[in-house]
Design a protein around this nucleic acid. Structure first.
Lengths: 146, 146
DNA sequence: TATTGTTATACTCTATAACTATA
DNA sequence: TATAGTTATAGAGTATAACAATA
């Protein structure tokens, strides 16, 4: 028999795949792909370097270049060279970018019907357990060799 | 303040994104993309129509054509025209396809470290709650207008 | 007419390799 | 030499529209 952890993991990936339509529909009127919306949602108000964005999105640096190019085309971000290290470029949100980020983040908080249909205690437990799992994932990233 | 459901949903998508590297690594030696592996894992032993596969993957029929083309190139599937309705093609696993499907399915059951690090009761609860959510998602698909 | 599946086309997403500029 | 970022290139993944075959 499979472990609870393994089956929980499979159920999570299965569930996310079943919600593909919900995810696309939730931002459907914003003229953005899900990936672009996630990237936009990841950029902090203080800006971040291209390198940090690529790490955050777990993608190649050349991919991050293309993503930020598309955000820039839409007027949501701008790049500025770092004064201290002129190799580095930081990505900042424009005014339109900040407004779109707020809309995207609120859309990402809209739970699909299959989550809303869970009992109140299931919803609370699910949130608590997933936040613990997220904390473990975060800890791994900080100290990958521990 | 946001609802538990909304935060649970956001934690789930955040967690899945944090596990992108794990998902790619888990099937890294099988010479398949994650999407192709999921498609292969979805095909039952009795075969399924192209239309049913497109529905299962929540993608356009033309996309399903390309996916099955790539599975066929690798020798994992074959198409056969349905005798009863000659418009329909069913996709079947070959011997190699069945063997690869077993390998892929077992890889998908390997939980990432951040799940394995949860307590035994958290892992069990997570599995139980996600399976209930999956049941709700399944019910929606059967009766979308209820 | 409606449905199944494919083809033609185009755009996004993604990575590898080669390159520029800077450190 | 090493790092940050871009460009060139190529392939996978995706959808829309037009099409052929069949119902």
């Amino acid at each position: 028999m499979s472990s609870n952890g393994g089956r929980a993991w499979q159920a999570m990936t299965d569930f996310l795949r079943s919600q593909k339509r919900h995810m696309i529909a939730s931002i459907g009127d914003l003229d953005m792909s899900v990936q672009l919306a996630h990237a936009l949602a990841s950029i902090p108000r203080e800006g971040m370097t291209m390198r940090a964005l690529a790490d955050e999105l777990a993608c190649d640096a050349s991919n991050a270049t293309g993503i930020v190019d598309r955000l820039e085309e839409r007027g949501f971000t701008e790049r500025r060279v770092d004064d201290a290290d002129r190799r580095v470029k930081r990505v900042f949100l424009t005014g339109a970018g900040r407004r779109m980020q707020e809309r995207v983040r609120s859309r990402f908080l809209e739970p699909p019907p299959a989550i809303a249909a869970l009992s109140a205690s299931d919803q609370r437990l699910l949130r608590e357990i997933l936040e613990r799992a997220l904390a473990h994932a975060e800890a791994e990233r900080v100290e990958p060799g521990a």
